[in-house]
């Protein structure tokens, strides 16, 4: 069972919910931090890291002696990663999406692929939680490749929880696209509702089963609840606005002990979505 925690709007509490679920689960659980541009689950779990693997992508390398400047590679490239300058193909690897097409189409065999490091994946454990996290190197634009590398560590049996990146762009889609269920965490504000609608449209397009968690539930107004009722989207849990939760979070601690009954709420939620 892959349970993805996504949101649309950033800062709604994805990490809080993902951690609470992982720490409330009864059986073995694996937590994947897919927010590779700003991973943060490790700050709370403080895991023992036992494995580090670089993530690489194949990018083209041009042999200038063989390149006759025909421009086939440049016309094929949808990422604008190749320019024809002074009659030679010049590669800008940071823009490459590694489709491999340029190397295949080159009539003179001037292009071969080399591996380029763009990030890394770490594996470890913290008490009962098996933990995997990915990190995209600063300045690299292709997050989905690192996310896919993280997701290769999803458990084949049992529960895997994915803490996903915010937004509804490629990184979020790469994270949630094969989830068995997506929990969309939102807040009862106009911004939360606006981005929730985008996230709902995205997971519907992807054909995912999904439901909603409202965080800081009494901070705003009732429009998120109203929207979910109109759209027949289940609201699984409403987490109260509570300064003690924010304080525990800011100290890098679990927020479960702060609010009586919270652990039981998350157990109940897990039971519902994994049924």
């Amino acid at each position: 069972m892959k349970l993805a925690i996504a949101s649309g709007k950033g800062g709604t509490g994805k990490t809080t919910v993902a951690l609470c679920l992982a720490l409330s689960a009864d059986g073995p659980v694996r937590l994947l931090d897919c927010d590779v541009e700003e991973p943060n689950c490790h700050l709370f779990l403080k895991p023992q890291i036992r494995q580090y693997d670089a993530v690489t992508l194949p990018v083209p390398m041009v042999d200038a002696a063989k390149c006759d400047g025909c421009g086939e590679c440049r016309r094929l490239c949808q990422s604008n990663a190749i320019a024809l300058l002074k009659g030679k193909a010049v590669v800008f690897p940071e823009l490459c999406h590694s489709c491999g097409g340029c190397a295949k189409i080159c009539p003179t065999g001037a292009i071969h692929e080399v591996e380029r490091e763009i990030g890394f994946v770490e594996q470890g454990a913290s008490n009962s939680v098996e933990f995997v996290t990915g990190s995209l190197n600063v300045g690299q634009p292709v997050a989905p490749a690192v996310i896919r590398a993280v997701k290769r560590h999803a458990a084949s049996t049992g529960l895997t929880i994915l803490d996903c990146p915010p937004g509804t762009s490629c990184a979020m889609v790469a994270s949630v696209r094969d989830a068995d269920h997506v929990l969309l965490v939102t807040e009862p504000t106009p911004f939360g509702l606006h981005d929730l609608k985008l996230a709902v449209a995205t997971v519907r397009e992807l054909g995912r089963s999904f439901s909603v968690v409202i965080n800081r539930a009494d901070a705003g107004d009732g429009r998120v609840v109203e929207y979910c009722r109109t759209e027949s989207i289940p609201v699984r849990l409403q987490i109260p606005e509570d300064r003690r939760i924010a304080e525990a979070y800011s100290r890098g601690e679990s927020v479960l002990p702060v609010t009586p009954g919270l652990r039981e709420d998350f157990r109940q939620l897990l039971a519902e979505v994994t049924r």
Partner: peptide, 14 residues
């Protein structure tokens, strides 16, 4: 262009 505008513009002026 979605990305790489500067590179392609350099190619154009070249």
């Amino acid at each position: 262009a979605a990305q790489g505008a500067g590179i392609q513009t350099a190619e154009t002026v070249s």
